[in-house]
């Protein structure tokens, strides 16, 4: 199967699964797990563009998630802004910060973005913990319910629909980007940066673009998360959350949009069902990362697709 057709098939499957899933839900716990999985999946589809296609890691994506979440929480709660405007402000803040940091750093070859995002992520996390007057500190703060264009988003089914549609649109956007001239140029940079540059590809600008886009997607997911959960703590922006996002992308399959979704869903949902293993959660997560990189360096979904004879989804 060629790339375009398998992508179309993938989108069709995603749409069917997203639409059909609520039929299997017997209580609100399932909706809760599905909504949290969907929100993680949105972040991972964006992060996958950076890791899989731009060949850079971000060790601070939870910070952008946190910026979106706190922008929504503070602006709609304390400042009484409409939710749409607060969400946009979060996007602007995340995107602006990402741009500011990435422009000088992505001009260097190597893994400097990983180090810079690590630093940035921890700074944001400390800020959220310390600015108690603004954020409520480690105890967290309440977030008003979401009202979009006059309609209150309430109840598990409505929330599920909003997250599912968001995930579908972000996936569509990511697949389009990968298939666009920008995506082709990114793949060329991944193959041989020097050769791509010789052909006139501005590799630095492309990487900055993808990083900023992935930061804004994370911010959007953060805004949804804040309104959905109704209570926000700085734990959502912690270093370990950033690592979890990277794990989801890497285990699902780098450079595979559907792999990122599968990774996000599995790693968000599994701990909910394995609460008995709470003490072993970190042991399992750590082992999964190490073994995954040794035995499935390309991730679960690309490896499956290869065995089934499909081209990269």
């Amino acid at each position: 199967m060629d790339g375009a057709r398998s992508r179309l098939l993938g989108l069709a499957i995603l749409a069917l699964v997203l639409a059909g899933l609520p039929l299997t839900f017997t209580n609100s716990f399932w909706y809760d797990v599905a909504i949290h999985s969907g929100i993680s999946a949105i972040v991972c589809v964006g992060l996958n563009l950076l890791i899989g296609y731009a060949g850079q890691i971000s060790l601070g994506h939870a910070a952008f998630f946190g910026i979106g979440a706190y922008a929504s929480a503070i602006l709609t709660g304390s400042w009484r802004w409409p939710a749409e405007l607060a969400l946009l402000a979060g996007l602007a803040l995340s995107g602006g910060l990402a741009l500011l940091v990435a422009r000088p750093i992505l001009a260097l070859r190597g893994h400097y973005l990983a180090m810079a995002t690590l630093g940035l992520g921890i700074i944001v996390s400390i800020l959220l913990n310390q600015e108690i007057r603004l954020t409520g500190g480690p105890d967290g703060m309440p977030v008003p319910g979401l009202v979009l264009f006059g309609f209150p988003v309430r109840g598990p089914l409505v929330w599920y629909a909003l997250v599912a549609v968001s995930l579908f649109i972000v996936t569509l956007l990511a697949l389009h980007l990968v298939d666009s001239p920008i995506g082709r140029a990114l793949r060329a940079v991944h193959g041989s940066e020097l050769a791509a540059r010789a052909c006139g590809v501005d590799s630095t600008r492309l990487k900055v673009l993808v990083f900023v886009l992935s930061a804004m997607i994370a911010s959007y997911a953060g805004s949804l998360f804040a309104h959905f959960s109704g209570w926000l703590t700085p734990a959502e922006a912690e270093f370990m959350r950033s690592i979890e996002f990277v794990t989801m992308v890497v285990l699902g399959g780098m450079a595979s949009t559907f792999g990122a979704i599968v990774g996000a869903v599995v790693l968000t949902a599994l701990p909910q069902f394995l609460t008995v293993f709470h003490d072993y959660e970190h042991v399992v997560l750590g082992l999964a990362l190490v073994l995954g990189m040794i035995f499935l360096p390309r991730g679960v979904v690309p490896e499956l697709a290869r065995r089934l004879g499909w081209r990269a989804l």
């Binding site: 890791i51 893994h111 890497v250 780098m254 970190h282 999964a288 990362l289 190490v290 990189m293």
Partner: peptide, 25 residues
């Protein structure tokens, strides 16, 4: 995991650190 590339090796060491921490706990 030496063939996993630089990105992969960073992830391996992060995984190992989570594992060691989990075991120590």
């Amino acid at each position: 995991a030496r063939d996993a590339g630089l990105t992969g090796l960073v992830i391996v060491t992060i995984g190992a650190s989570i594992l060691i921490r989990g075991l120590a706990g």
